[in-house]
Simulated assay, not measured.
Amino acid sequence: MDPVEIVQKEVQERRRAGRPPRALLSSARITRAALKLVTNDGYKGLTMAALAKSLNVAPSALYNHVSSKQDVLLLVEDHLMGKVDVSGFAGLPWTEAVTRWARSYRDVFASHLPLIPVIALLPVTNAPATITMYEAVTRGFQGAGWPEETIIDAVVALESFIYGSAYDVNAPADIFDAGDLAPTAPRFTAAVARRGAGGTGNAEIRNDADAAFELGLRAMVAGLAATLGPSAAPRH
C-alpha cells in the first residue's frame, strides 16, 4: 500500500470513528426508558431530567426529540395502546370481540398501573397506534349495527370499568378483611369468606380480581347491548 492509500485509509477510519454507529436517541428508546422510570419510581419519577440521565444524554439532546413531558407521555400512551388486542373486531361476533378487547386492555394497564391516572386523561391527538386501536373498535361496533352516536359513550363506559379493574388486579389479598370490626359486619364478613367458593369453570378466571372482572364485563356487555346497542336502536 502506497503512502497516499495509507493516508486515505487513516482519514476514512477517523471519520468512521467520529460517527455514532446509530442515532443516540429514538422514539423507541425514549419510550422504553420512560416506562422503566415509571415502573421503578412511579409517575412522579418521570421527569425530563431523570429521563435524560437514564438515557445517558444531556437534557438538550432529549429536547431535540421531544419538546415536553407531554410528548413523552404521548409516546408511552401510543406504545401501550398498540399492545391492546383488537383482532376480534375483524370477524368475531360483537360480544366476543369486545370481551377480548377488554381483557387485553385490562391486562396491559394492570402492568403499568402508575400511568392510568395520566393516560386516562391524555388526549389521543397525534398518537397513531392509539387512533388505530380506536378505529378498529369503532369499525367493529358499526359492523355490529350500533348507532354511531352511541359508540364513543359505550367505549368510554367500558374503559372506566377496565381502568378500575386494572387497579383491582394489584389490590392486596386482604383488602376486604374487616379485622377487629368483623363482628359488627357479619354478613359482609361471611360474604368475603365465601368469595369464589362456588367456582366458575372459566379458564380466564385465575383469582378474585379475574372473577370480579369477568362478572362485571359480562354484565356491562349485556347491559350496553340492551340499552345502546343495535337491539335498542329506534326503528325507522
Score class of each variant (00 low, 15 high):
127 A>C: 15
232 A>W: 02
5 E>G: 13
97 A>Y: 04
221 V>Y: 03
14 R>L: 14
41 D>M: 07
141 F>C: 11
52 A>F: 03
227 T>M: 12
163 Y>G: 05
117 P>F: 07
123 P>A: 04
45 G>H: 01
195 R>N: 13
185 A>T: 10
111 S>H: 06
88 G>K: 00
165 S>W: 00
130 T>Q: 00
9 K>H: 12
181 L>W: 06
219 A>Y: 11
175 I>G: 08
129 A>S: 08
206 R>Y: 10
234 P>F: 04
224 L>Q: 09
3 P>F: 06
153 D>A: 15
110 A>I: 07
125 T>M: 10
162 I>N: 07
26 S>W: 01
212 A>C: 08
192 V>I: 15
89 F>W: 07
106 R>N: 09
178 A>H: 00
69 K>M: 09
110 A>L: 05
214 E>M: 15
39 T>C: 12
45 G>D: 02
77 E>G: 07
71 D>M: 06
29 R>C: 01
136 A>P: 09
121 L>H: 15
146 W>F: 06
165 S>Q: 07
15 R>E: 10
205 I>G: 02
52 A>N: 02
232 A>M: 06
225 A>P: 03
122 L>M: 15
60 S>Q: 10
44 K>Q: 10
18 G>V: 04
135 E>L: 13
187 R>M: 10
9 K>E: 14
127 A>S: 15
48 M>T: 14
15 R>N: 05
68 S>P: 05
93 P>E: 07
213 F>G: 00
144 A>D: 03
76 V>A: 01
72 V>A: 00
119 I>K: 00
110 A>S: 14
153 D>C: 13
219 A>R: 11
79 H>K: 04
195 R>P: 09
158 L>K: 03
47 T>D: 04
191 A>Q: 15
70 Q>M: 13
121 L>D: 14
126 N>E: 15
233 A>E: 08
181 L>S: 07
69 K>A: 06
6 I>D: 15
41 D>Y: 12
140 G>L: 03
204 E>D: 14
5 E>D: 15
218 R>F: 09
111 S>C: 08
16 R>A: 12
200 T>Y: 06
8 Q>F: 12
142 Q>H: 10
171 A>D: 13
86 V>S: 12
196 G>K: 01
103 R>D: 06
145 G>F: 05
18 G>C: 03
201 G>W: 08
199 G>R: 01
178 A>I: 00
233 A>P: 01
33 A>F: 02
37 L>D: 01
158 L>V: 09
164 G>N: 07
229 G>Y: 00
162 I>S: 04
137 V>I: 06
151 I>F: 01
219 A>D: 09
63 Y>D: 02
95 T>K: 15
77 E>K: 10
231 S>G: 12
5 E>L: 05
202 N>S: 14
92 L>S: 12
43 Y>M: 11
188 F>A: 00
68 S>F: 08
228 L>M: 11
177 D>C: 09
209 A>S: 06
71 D>R: 03
179 G>T: 06
223 G>C: 03
1 M>R: 13
109 F>W: 07
99 T>Y: 04
103 R>V: 10
226 A>G: 11
150 T>Y: 08
170 N>I: 10
94 W>D: 04
206 R>W: 11
11 V>P: 00
138 T>Y: 08
141 F>Y: 13
154 A>F: 04
201 G>H: 12
57 V>K: 00
43 Y>P: 04
152 I>R: 12
17 A>S: 03
32 R>L: 05
30 I>Q: 01
147 P>C: 06
32 R>Q: 08
18 G>E: 03
95 T>E: 15
137 V>T: 03
92 L>P: 02
55 L>W: 02
